[in-house]
Write a protein that binds this DNA or RNA. Structure first.
Lengths: 216, 216, 216, 216
DNA sequence: CATGAATGAGTCTTCATTCAT
DNA sequence: CATGAATGAAGACTCATTCAT
């Protein structure tokens, strides 16, 4: 059936793009994985790049939709953020291929397609931003640099797609709860211990990387 | 002159591999960026893949060396970890291209080269692992899943290379200190607030991604 | 319906072959222009090349038939030739696509199909040849090289298909009459003015095209 | 040598484009004819279309230059026109491939390249136009439709490239002189004999080509 | 040290055509 | 009668690499 084949092509693309990268995946790889001839592939896709763009757009739209669904009705910033974290982590743990393609292959998109993808991603990140900002305003979250913190936490959660395996001992719920806890702690009001020796670290970096990093 | 050219080739490769990926970078791109003919390129490198492997190995060796230098003499787990974090963040902020190549292009390596890189990375991560484990053992860090926490925090710090720009308002020292704070908090002993509605999140993910993710 | 579709296919082919050439026209272009799927196309044609051959054969047969009809009963060479010219010009002005395909796409035919087409064309040109030869024999036409003259005049009339537009100011009848006049004049007995400086022209051609045209 | 190869590529392209058309000529045909691998071809050309465009441009520039050289200093319209005719015929007889490519493959050019070619061709035709117009103004040429006449005569001369063979009995000088004579006669003041039966011809065309040519 | 020339294998994509439905 | 599905062969073009100069 047409539907089956189209689906097979997309799944093959997601798997291969995630594993070998967009440019590392040949049209023949796709064809083989989709059990089609490379010519037949073109019944179910436009160009290779359009296929990538569609995969990324669809992934992001699902993530955005899921986030909207899960947080609708929630008002408390902490509740909103933990829900976003849990959703994000669950999604990245269960759809690691889609997620990695979205995270790693933006550079392979044409400017037009990239614009769409970046806008979707920005819309999604805005949900995080407003939860964090609201929490800070309400005094339940504490951070000096909310934007930096948001980026840091997002990257932390993105990482799940790079290492989580369902074959491990950690159950999905535990994983999600653990990440939610990490995020809540990171935003908690805790007296910091002493700072690291930043001057020493900078010196080491300069030494190891040579003069070209004089900027340090 | 030879040294200069070799250096130019490496720098060009790092920049291009970071920006367009290994497979997305052609030998002609490299030649152009290094202001050499594509044939001359081969005076300063082996194959394209050997060039990649060397870049990755060198990057990781420097990171490992820097970590060893910076933490030598430190015993307190908190001190060790904050130092590692600061070093990691400084490195990723000042050498984003090298870092991104290391993080994103492992899949392009041959098994032999990959082995070397993975071993170096594992050695480096082991420094984090022992700091965390020691801290937990000493009761200064609190986490139920030390390994997961380590991976989460590492990914959080890796992210710096993907977004930090020296043109922003945040100074390097502030950046490093902020990340150190985030890490310390994440390992602090804080009563977590209520958990997110995990069942609800799982249901949303299932709905949005369709039955193929019944595994959720 | 079948007839309609078959007709649509032929018309689409004529238009496209004339505009983009046989090799420049894809089966999908044909299908689109004929408002059919590319598979359905094959209900109304053999191979693409057979379609071309049929179009050319049919065109030439019509021209030949028209010439036979129009000149039947005519005996005077001048009358025969002007009639052939008028008919030729009218045909090329009103059927420019068919005509251009016949004139330009012979090279795309297989030897077998080409043979048929060439024979038809030769039969047609023979009508011109005999009119001219008879006129020369009767002393009403004057030309030193009847064959060259015939080819020259034929090409002159063929040209109509390349530029004539019904949207211009020139009415068809005027066009045909004008060409008939040109042909009659070209065969008239007129003292030629002085010859061009052929040696000078040859020198210029040699100079401009380089030594490879030493043959000049 | 590079020069040799580049030259071989151009010559092969001219021959093949003339014989099989641009779209009918594959890159492999070119490579074989130029005695190069298809990859090596690209050391000496841009895209296939750029190769075509360059061939056409160069051909037209040479024709234009030759015409300028040959007619410089000539003032009498008849002299100018016969010189243009002789030059045109000599060029088409000695460079039939270049000429046919210019005449037949305009449709294969991109709009940008086509513009250049059309402008060159128009500039060349303008030389004919002014010679004819001047002759008409001076009363040495007689024609009711100078533009139509110019087009007709140009096409007549173009035809040479389609049939002339140096292996025939006709020497180049005779060929050029004969065409010059045809052109002079076509512009002479000669009483036309009776017109052809245009109504009859129109009826025949309508009958043979069917109702779709009701426009006749 | 440097590179123009060269290429076999590969890239993505389209070709004309067939056939089961 | 009509067409989605399918494909082997071919399309133009680029790849990473080598080598004689």
């Amino acid at each position: 059936m047409a539907v089956d084949s189209r689906e097979r092509v997309h799944r093959a693309a997601v798997t291969l793009f995630a594993g070998k990268g967009f440019h590392g995946t040949g049209i023949r790889d796709l064809a083989q994985a989709a059990k089609l001839s490379s010519a037949s592939l073109y019944h179910y896709m436009g160009t290779k790049e359009e296929l990538l763009a569609e995969i990324m757009r669809e992934s992001l739209e699902r993530l955005l939709e899921a986030a909207a669904l899960a947080t609708s009705g929630l008002t408390a910033p902490a509740e909103r953020l933990t829900t976003l974290v849990a959703l994000h982590v669950l999604t990245h743990a269960t759809q690691p291929d889609e997620t990695r393609v979205v995270d790693n292959e933006v550079h392979a998109l044409s400017p037009a397609a990239r614009k769409i993808v970046v806008e979707l991603r920005d819309a999604y990140e805005q949900l995080w931003a407003s939860a964090i900002d609201d929490g800070v305003a309400e005094g339940v979250f504490h951070t000096e640099h909310p934007t930096v913190t948001r980026l840091a936490l997002l990257e932390m959660c993105n990482g799940v797609a790079r290492w989580y395996s369902p074959r491990g001992t950690l159950v999905l719920d535990e994983l999600a709860a653990h990440y939610a806890q990490l995020v809540m702690r990171a935003l908690a009001h805790t007296g910091t211990g002493e700072n690291p020796d930043l001057a020493g670290c900078r010196a080491v970096v300069s030494q190891v990387w040579g003069i070209r990093t004089a900027g340090v």
